[in-house]
Design a protein around this nucleic acid. Structure first.
Length: 587
DNA sequence: TACGGTAGCTCG
DNA sequence: GTACGAGCTACCGTAC
């Protein structure tokens, strides 16, 4: 292993010569983080920057060289090259905050590993786990959390830092081979594709998306701090008062499921259904029928206030100067969807969305794809009736309502439409008539009998026969082979063992392909416009934009969403809503 | 006291 | 025969 430890500006200048001809480099950083649970991307400092070519490894000590000199070096030798690294979101965030460096062409072996796992959750994707799986090399990660802030690093620390790069080389090469084996009908293009020799369109998309995600995390999501504080105080006193009232009146803790169940069944003689584990369940939906009892009413109120309070306090934990800084996993679900945490910005209750507010002089553009999963399902199953309906711009829920009830399209009631909504969504996931009864009641407040559910189920499949065929084929294949390898519209491979997963994964996965592609296209056309994506929620994009750029940004976003839709869906048109608003609540 | 599982809630 | 994907909090039993 050829390792050079770089501690002077002269040495730094010297390696520039060797880097000049490299179209891409391997990169890793070590950061002086004392508490890995609480990383501060804005305060913590990069200690080492490891840069590798196929023959050389340079370990640059950021504590020994003037910051401005390193910055200039990175600007000229790193920012515009292809960057290969493992879990690059971490390194790119620090390069941005420490040195204002934003590479655009990247290949992340962590993301590649997740793509290659095809949705298998049991696989681990740490650098050492990937090394073990793909190469003959083993990696000792025990130095990862060693003290990277001490003045003179040990020889072992430097060697450890360099070793990561060495492993990276073999992993990258093996991954490119494996990704390229997996070519699909759809061809990809773009810089990422060319620089790294990657032909896999899913990899190309994910790698292009990564720098967008870095920007989004660093941007944070603006919130009205004042409103947040006041609302938290209100929620707190409201909850406390109700909590004390309940405890005084009934002598039990309303937050203890056990005590609540005992109280409801013994004292109020309420019949409760069982949970999966066989204990009684006191879920809100089962208590709705007893709302007129004051005990139940108070309990439901307490739960509602408690949820609000929890979410508000969770938000406050991650508040910094009027913005919430959350984290996203780029591939958080096996389907390819993102997930969000610390705090979770993808499950903000509707009644708290108004707190998110663009700062003075800025606005939000809120865009979401309409009935996207249903459209994807139509594309996927090639169901002619559903495709036709979407082409004609029909209200799909209303159409389904008329199909299952046999009534005219024009005479469908609100309740019937709600029921159809339940069926449309349920069918995507392979719902059974039995579950449909529950689902319709719990989510749409529509009560039907099992017999009715069976009829609706049958009517649905008879009309949307493309679905029936697709479901049957999938079921048959699964019975024969035990598992099935599905594919999203972009070519993301997903392995399913259960029927419900087999019909759901490609649809949910295609939705995530679509959203990511729209974001990538948006950033590509943005030029010098002061706009940035501040949140992504599966089928929704929230952009913060300077008021004078509002119209331009709206147009660019609209074009991006349309283009992504046309690229992925050939038979079914996409449709989306775009609204301009000061808060996350659409005005 | 620490940890993991479960229930219950939010979102798509 | 089974609707899908996430994350967070609180409770509660178990292990130390």
């Amino acid at each position: 292993m050829q390792v050079e430890y770089i501690t002077t500006p002269e040495k730094l200048q010297h390696i520039e010569e060797n880097l000049k001809s490299q179209p891409f480099i391997y990169l890793d950083t070590e950061v002086a983080v004392k508490d890995f649970e609480n990383i501060d991307y804005f305060k913590d400092q990069i200690r080492l920057i490891q840069i590798g070519t196929d023959t050389q490894i340079y370990v640059i000590d950021a504590y020994k060289i003037d910051k401005e000199k390193i910055k200039r070096f990175l600007k000229e030798n790193v920012e515009n090259k292809g960057i290969i690294g493992h879990n690059l979101k971490f390194d790119l965030k620090f390069l941005a905050t420490n040195y204002n460096i934003y590479p655009k062409v990247v290949f992340d072996t962590f993301i590649a590993s997740k793509i290659l796992a095809k949705g298998d959750n049991s696989q681990k994707h740490s650098l050492s786990a990937v090394a073990t799986r793909l190469t003959d090399e083993e990696l000792d990660k025990s130095y990862q959390t060693s003290p990277w802030w001490i003045e003179n690093l040990t020889k072992e620390q430097i060697e450890y830092a360099a070793k990561d790069i060495e492993v990276l080389r073999s992993i990258f090469k093996e991954q490119v081979l494996r990704l390229n084996e997996d070519q699909t009908a759809l061809k990809s293009s773009g810089e990422t594709f060319k620089v790294f020799g990657v032909k896999n369109p899913v990899a190309a998309l994910e790698m292009s998306f990564l720098p967008c995600l870095v920007k989004m995390e660093l941007s944070g999501f603006p919130i009205n701090e004042n409103k947040l504080q006041i609302q938290t105080q209100n929620a707190k006193s409201k909850f406390q008062n109700l909590y004390i009232e309940f405890k005084k009146k009934y002598g039990i803790d309303p937050m203890s499921p056990q005590q609540v169940v005992n109280f409801l069944t013994k004292k109020l003689s309420i019949k409760l259904p069982k949970t999966e584990k066989g204990s009684f369940s006191s879920q809100d939906v089962y208590l709705k029928d007893y709302e007129d009892k004051q005990e139940v009413n108070l309990l439901l109120q307490i739960r509602y206030e408690k949820k609000n309070l929890d979410k508000l306090e969770e938000l406050k934990k991650y508040l910094k100067e009027g913005r919430i800084y959350g984290e996203f996993k780029q591939i958080g679900a096996s389907t390819g969807r993102m997930s969000s945490s610390k705090p979770n910005l993808q499950n903000i209750p509707k009644n708290l969305k108004h707190l998110f507010e663009a700062p003075e002089g800025y606005m939000f553009i809120i865009a979401d794809y309409s009935q996207i999963e249903l459209r994807i399902a139509a594309e996927y199953t090639k169901d002619q009736n559903m495709i036709k309906a979407f082409k004609e711009g029909k209200d799909l829920h209303r159409l389904t309502a008329s199909i299952i009830t046999g009534k005219d399209y024009e005479n469908i009631t609100k309740e019937e439409r709600n029921l159809a909504k339940a069926i449309n969504f349920g069918l995507i996931y392979g719902i059974s008539p039995k579950s449909l009864v529950e689902y319709a009641k719990n989510n749409y407040g529509v009560e039907i009998t099992l017999k009715e559910a069976k009829i609706f189920h049958e009517n649905f499949f008879n009309y949307y026969s493309g679905f029936k065929i697709w479901h049957e084929k999938t079921k048959e294949y699964l019975e024969k082979h035990r598992f099935i390898e599905q594919q999203t519209l972009l070519g993301r491979k997903l392995i399913a063992y259960r029927f419900t997963d087999a019909v759901n994964y490609p649809i949910q996965g295609s939705g995530s392909d679509l959203l990511k592609m729209a974001v990538v296209l948006f950033y590509k056309s943005l030029d010098n416009i002061d706009a940035k994506v501040v949140n992504l929620v599966h089928d929704e994009i929230v952009v913060e934009v300077k008021e004078e750029d509002l119209e331009k940004a709206r147009k660019i976003l609209s074009t991006a969403m349309e283009k992504a839709g046309k690229y992925l869906l050939k038979e079914v048109p996409v449709s989306f809503e775009i609204s301009l608003s000061k808060t996350w609540n659409k005005d």
